[in-house]
Design a protein around this nucleic acid. Structure first.
Length: 295
DNA sequence: TCGCAGGTGGTCG
DNA sequence: CGACCACCTGCG
């Protein structure tokens, strides 16, 4: 992998297993929007950018273009955020071994990568996601950022905003949040923001160092965080790859492809975590993406 | 109009 | 501990 600066953007060569649609539209993130040219524009950790990928040959992968980015930004942040240091080919080899179903799913979503997102942002984002749908979730989050987040500069003619910090939400009232249209989730957001602001994110950081079950138990102390949201936070925000979030789509696809009863989440979780272990999260993403486009 | 959408908290047996 | 069910809001 080789990166070089060209004007206001970074070109990364020889990037393998990357497909912008797979990465930004596989349900893990909510602040990236597809442009007409197939690139994605978004904000992560207060940095706005436009990301596009041009597939090259099979051996060397392709070329990744990150606009509005310096070499320093790339090294300090985007390289890690986009998880470019990980060999997804090896991951796919391991989870598809003797598993024709997984092979099919991994082939379908072959360019998926797990973004290394901010813990706090994933906590709030996935609390908002409960019992809702993606367009609405994205609207809520964007509104939350424009109303309460710090301005993060103008990009492509639009002012961009960082995700609000815990203390920026903890001081609000339900009336303040009303324009965001969070519905009944507003009280969960306020309670969770107060908790995280109080300990400065220490409990989140602590959870990152625990085993899966203890970490889940810790995260679930937050209001509005049940088993599904907790696993999303663990996987997407705390980068605990042995998590296997089970939402309605996963339940459907696990039923269809592996024959589990749709309400047997215990069984599915036990199966996935024993079979895929530290790679459960990757397996989940391939299956989820496959389900979204094949059910 | 009404059910449903990336679930969860509260309540009850 | 497991099985219900109400819940904000927007959309078809």
């Amino acid at each position: 992998m080789r990166a070089e600066q060209q004007g206001n953007c970074i070109i990364v060569y020889d990037v393998k297993d990357f497909d912008a649609d797979h990465v930004f539209d596989c349900g893990q993130c909510f602040r990236w929007n597809r442009e007409e040219d197939g690139s994605y524009t978004g904000v992560a950790s207060g940095r706005s950018a436009n990301i596009s990928f041009v597939a090259g040959n099979f051996q060397d992968g392709g070329t990744l273009r990150i606009d509005n980015c310096t070499l320093e930004d790339f090294r300090d942040f985007w390289c890690g955020y986009l998880d470019l240091g990980r060999d997804y080919g090896e991951i796919k080899r391991r989870i598809t071994e003797n598993d024709s179903v997984m092979r099919k799913a991994a082939e379908f979503g072959s360019g998926i990568r797990l973004l290394r997102q901010d813990p706090w942002e994933t906590v709030i984002s996935f609390i908002i996601s409960q019992n809702s749908n993606i367009p609405r979730i994205k609207k809520c989050i964007e509104k939350l950022c424009t109303m309460f987040g710090d301005p993060a500069g103008e990009y492509r003619g639009e002012m961009r905003y960082a995700f609000p910090r815990p203390e920026q939400l903890a001081c609000l009232t339900r009336d303040d949040l009303a324009p965001v249209k969070l519905g009944y989730r507003d009280k969960y957001i306020l309670s969770t923001a107060a908790d995280v602001a109080r300990d400065g994110g220490a409990s989140l950081a602590a959870a990152a160092g625990m085993n899966h079950d203890d970490a889940q138990k810790e995260i679930r102390k937050l209001k509005g965080v049940g088993p599904k949201v907790a696993d999303c936070i663990l996987l997407f925000g705390l980068h605990k790859y042995d998590s296997f979030p089970l939402d309605v789509w996963m339940k459907k696809i696990m039923n269809k492809l592996y024959g589990f009863d749709e309400d047997d989440t215990r069984g599915m979780d036990a199966y996935a975590r024993s079979r895929y272990g530290e790679l459960s999260g990757f397996a989940q993403q391939y299956l989820y993406y496959y389900a979204r486009f094949n059910l």
